[in-house]
């Protein structure tokens, strides 16, 4: 029995050094040198300031911006009460509400009403009224973006085709035509809006 102690201890130490220290450190060095943008979180800077990550969604409420999907993230305020902290990227997670959850059904119904109030009647893209898995989903469906476009254009007093054109320009289509979904990165789209001069 104790004959196995030395091999066990030594192998654990050696593999900890190799796969837990040496290789990750070397790999991090390589990543920082070769792919610093991705390695540091695909951060976008504007005037020297970090304004976000291409990969990480942000919460948008202003009518001049496209809106991200609902985020189920919560935090606690100073008094210890649970509050909604949408797109707080220091954490991540989903609502975990069941398909038979009344809370989920109620919020979906409420979101549909709010969505219709803002973007007009008709069927609402499902992604716009459901919370994502990470709470940090950077994308909305192309259908959702096109549905939001007229209201965003109106808020900016722009012609609708300009905004729609921008959506189409920035839309990411499925890889090879079938892998993944057609979608738009909201932060990238809103940034483009800010830079667009119609």
């Amino acid at each position: 029995m104790f004959r196995e102690l030395r091999p066990a201890l030594t192998l654990v130490v050696l593999f900890t050094l190799l796969t837990g220290l040496v290789l990750p450190v070397l790999f991090t060095g390589f990543a920082q040198l070769a792919f610093p943008f991705q390695a540091n979180g695909s951060l976008i800077r504007q005037n020297g300031q970090i304004i976000g990550s291409v990969r990480i969604g942000q919460n948008f409420t202003a009518p001049v911006y496209f809106q991200s999907r609902p985020s189920a993230l919560t935090g606690t305020d100073a008094k210890g009460n649970s509050i909604a902290t949408p797109y707080d990227a220091s954490e991540s997670g989903a609502s975990n509400l069941a398909a038979t959850s009344k809370a989920l059904e109620d919020s979906v119904t409420a979101r549909i009403a709010a969505y219709r109030a803002q973007f007009g009647p008709g069927p609402v893209p499902i992604d716009a009224v459901t919370a994502s898995g990470s709470g940090l989903d950077p994308d909305i469906s192309l259908a959702d973006a096109l549905r939001q476009a007229p209201a965003v254009a109106a808020a900016r007093h722009w012609p609708v085709p300009v905004v729609i054109g921008l959506v189409h320009k920035l839309a990411q289509h499925p890889l090879l035509g079938f892998i993944g979904e057609a979608r738009v990165d909201v932060l990238v789209l809103n940034l483009a809006l800010d830079h667009e001069k119609p």
Partner: peptide
């Protein structure tokens, strides 16, 4: 959800990411 007015296009999206 569909009965409440959501589009059936993407199926059940609660807890799912748009890119997937």
């Amino acid at each position: 959800q569909i009965a409440a007015g959501a589009s059936p296009l993407h199926g059940n999206m609660e807890g799912k990411e748009m890119r997937f």
